[in-house]
Nucleic acid binder design. Structure first.
Length: 786
DNA sequence: GTTAGTATTGTTTTT
DNA sequence: CAATACTAAC
């Protein structure tokens, strides 16, 4: 109980037990930031300074918010579910659902992700006959989001020239389109919520009265709008403002490209008259050399609040630096090092490979895969972003809201129903003419096209009727079938994976109902002002498949979020990390951005080359460069015991061979902390070249099923078409020494030796034209001759 | 209206 | 190299 504070150092203790007033905590990497934040909440509650309902804690990522909830419930015997702990977007969504009428939104508004937003803009521009050459949709998207992040509506944006004026007009038209269709984009979620609080006195006062403690994680990454939102919520400038507890690290601000404004930290300090500024500078994570490197590097940034991390741990091992000839060699070297580490008992999950951009993961994946080392890739294409999943979700959206034109357009002809571009054009014209949704405009389209469209609308209506009494999972399953999606993919050669993903969606729906209590926590907090205490108590976990209406009395409690809407919201707000096999012990691969907040025993930072890291587009201005340096700082401080830095002299980028010099960051690290692993200057020998040569091969992700593998499911299917061939190949019976084989790239050759088995099987082949090579049989496409 | 095949273009990081 | 846009043939 009272040992909440037991293991805190002096700085942390001071932060946790601060009085109820604005406070800024400058928390260095690995200084126990999350711990301070959660302990603070627990301490406040335990000492009766605030009730769980009076706390609002906001983070940036879903991961962080989940972590906070987990830790909190391990400290206190309370249900964190009903608490207002979440991401900015998640909390805004909650509030908007609760007050949808006041916010001017339909009850079932859908959320557009970045892709959806872009296609909505393209659709709009097409309808308005805007030249995409002159006004690229992508630029418009950036323009709009940027404006929204500053809290600016079209009327507030100053247009200095014709070009900007056009953008402003399009911004206005886009907002109207969204409103008509009942959808909001990410930025709108925040802006709309901000406006709700700002212009609705009763609601604002309610929340200001309710939240006595507002805690913010990663404060350095807040944008202008988020800060304004916080100020409103915390009752800045009122008689009795909430105590804002902001935790941040200016050195870890890496989201400027997304509108993050480090200046918020300074503004906060001034505007809230912060008297309590605590620096957490004791690092509990990294060994000395690693920390020295981080400190040394970041000291090259001019604009800093100033902070230096220290550790009690010894120097530890030096930072190892490796220069490779090619990206393939870099990957090959990592494989060897990882093998060593694993052999010495290091858990795979404690090894992380970091890179600047997602594209770099391919070569590394290939090397790990050939070596049979289990790995997991974060980021990339996430579950809810897959095309087949988005199609299924679009059907589900239409069940809730037929006016959602984006969803309508997405699936009206998928699977193909003979509704082509021309018919759609007619439909869009009609919709514009009668100022209605696409679904409503169907009635105005004559002829064959009209009847096909009408059939589609009937299909949706029929599905809606059929699923009315179904559980969420049943609904999802029914829709994947009745829509014809499953049938369609069954006929496709690479459709098996997609079908499996659709089945996975049913499972996900099931899991959502069980684990999330149906989004009950969202429901509980979604109850309009005045009802929340009742709702918070009414959180018995529903039995599997129970309809929420059966758990909560619909008469007494205005249920605003149906399970389906909750699920769809969940899908857009949490793109669903591809954690298919999260529990498995696998090497972790991710971008540096994705690594923020995580830590590992062993860390590889790869591709440290000018143009890559620092990235080409950021090299020109100092702000960009400083952000890259902060990014590097974040990367370094992920490591606990061992850190590797590597770069390659040449690598294949955008399908072309590029030659790079090593990153300037090497010049900014303390020499005495580094240990150069002198690479063999190998233009020929050294690491096996075919690893690189095969890296981009079409058959790249062919794999036997039993290989430990937990990366992204490749979208291309290999299970159906060539599963048999692979099985034969891997069994070893397919090849013998002396066998003549043919390879797509290397031509004819003779097998000189065989080695290993299963996924590890390799063959040494003497090619007529390319000489002797070792090829992994699981990867290389070899056909026996004769 | 659909499909398959070809030309083009754009490639950082993400809630 | 990949995703997307466009074009020509079915």
């Amino acid at each position: 109980m009272s040992d909440l504070l037991a293991n805190l150092n002096a700085e942390q203790l001071a932060a946790v037990t601060l009085p109820d007033e604005p406070a800024l905590i400058l928390a260095g990497a690995g200084s126990g930031k999350t711990r301070v934040l959660t302990t603070r909440i627990a301490w406040l509650i335990q000492n009766g300074r605030v009730s769980p309902a009076g706390v609002l804690a906001v983070t940036f990522t879903n991961k962080a918010s989940k972590e906070m909830q987990t830790r909190l419930s391990s400290m206190l015997p309370i249900n964190t579910r009903g608490m207002w702990i979440g991401t900015f977007h998640g909390l805004c969504n909650r509030m908007l659902r609760a007050h949808f009428r006041d916010a001017g939104l339909p009850q079932t508004f859908a959320i557009l992700d970045t892709q959806d937003q872009l296609s909505a803009l393209k659709r709009l521009m097409k309808a308005l006959n805007v030249d995409d050459e002159k006004y690229p949709a992508k630029n418009l998207q950036y323009f709009i989001n940027n404006a929204k992040e500053q809290g600016l509506r079209p009327a507030d944006v100053e247009a200095n020239d014709d070009f900007n004026r056009r953008f402003v007009d399009l911004y206005a038209a886009y907002d109207q389109q969204c409103q008509r269709e009942g959808v909001v984009d990410f930025a709108e979620l925040l802006l709309r919520c901000y406006e709700l609080l700002r212009y609705n006195d009763a609601i604002r006062q309610h929340y200001q009265h309710r939240f006595r403690h507002v805690l913010v994680d990663e404060f350095q990454d807040t944008n202008v709008l988020q800060y304004q939102w916080l100020k409103l919520l915390a009752g800045y400038g009122t008689q009795n403002p909430a105590a804002v507890f902001a935790v941040g690290d200016d050195d870890q601000s890496i989201y400027a490209f997304r509108g993050a404004n480090v200046g918020n930290m300074r503004d906060f300090e001034e505007e809230f008259r912060v008297r309590r500024l605590i620096k957490l500078e004791q690092n509990y994570r990294s060994h000395g050399h690693i920390l020295d490197s981080a400190n040394h590097l970041i000291s090259h940034n001019a604009r800093r609040l100033g902070k230096n991390l220290r550790t009690d741990a010894g120097h530890g091992e030096p930072v190892r630096v490796f220069q490779a000839g090619t990206d393939g060699q870099e990957a090959g070297w990592m494989v060897e090092e990882i093998r060593d580490q694993i052999a010495q008992g290091m858990s795979r999950a404690e090894i992380a490979i970091l890179y600047r951009s997602n594209a770099q993961s391919r070569v590394i994946e290939h090397a790990l895969f050939s070596a049979g080392i289990a790995y997991r890739v974060y980021g990339g294409l996430r579950f809810f972003e897959r095309a087949e999943i988005k199609h299924a979700l679009a059907y589900l959206q239409l069940l809730e809201n037929p006016r959602n034109d984006a969803a309508f357009g997405r699936v009206v002809n998928f699977p193909a129903r003979g509704i082509g571009a021309r018919s759609l054009e007619q439909l869009q014209d009609a919709a514009r003419q009668y100022n209605c949704s696409l679904a409503e405009a169907v009635a105005y389209v004559p002829g064959a096209a009209g009847s096909k469209l009408a059939a589609f609308v009937r299909l949706i209506e029929q599905m809606r009727a059929e699923t009315r009494r179904m559980t969420l999972a049943e609904t999802v399953e029914h829709v994947t079938n009745a829509s014809g999606l499953i049938t369609h993919y069954r006929g496709e050669k690479e459709g098996q994976d997609r079908i499996e993903n659709l089945q996975e969606l049913v499972t996900a729906a099931q899991a959502f109902v069980v684990e999330e209590g149906y989004g009950l926590e969202a429901l509980a907090s979604v109850i309009p002002v005045g009802f929340e205490s009742r709702a918070a108590q009414a959180t018995p976990l529903p039995a599997e498949g129970d309809q929420v209406q059966q758990v909560l009395d619909p008469e007494a409690l205005p249920v605003v979020m149906t399970p389906l809407v909750a699920f769809l919201t969940h899908a857009s707000l949490e793109a669903g990390d591809n954690q298919a096999q999260a529990g498995q012990d696998a090497v972790q691969m991710m971008t540096v951005h994705a690594a923020k907040g995580l830590e590992f025993n062993v860390v590889f930072i790869t591709g440290l080359e000018e143009g890559l890291f620092p990235h080409e587009n950021s090299k020109t201005d100092t702000d960009g460069l400083e952000e890259e340096r902060r990014l590097m700082y974040v990367a370094i401080t992920r490591a606990r015991e061992r850190l590797y830095l590597s770069f390659a002299q040449s690598r294949v980028l955008h399908g072309q061979m590029r030659y790079h010099v090593r990153s300037r960051f090497f010049e900014e690290l303390p020499e005495e902390a580094l240990k150069w692993l002198t690479p063999q200057q190998s233009s020929y020998g050294g690491v096996r070249r075919e690893e690189r040569d095969n890296a981009w091969g079409r058959d790249w992700f062919r794999k036997p099923e039993d290989v430990p593998y937990s990366g992204n499911k490749p979208t291309g299917g290999m299970d159906t078409g060539n599963g048999y061939a692979d099985a034969k190949r891997e069994s070893g019976t397919g090849f013998r020494v002396g066998q003549q084989v043919f390879h797509n790239k290397f031509g004819e050759g003779v097998i000189k030796a065989l080695e290993g088995d299963g996924a590890d099987a390799r063959a040494q082949i003497n090619f007529k034209r390319h000489g002797a090579k070792w090829l992994a049989l699981a990867v290389a496409k070899l056909d026996p001759i004769n």
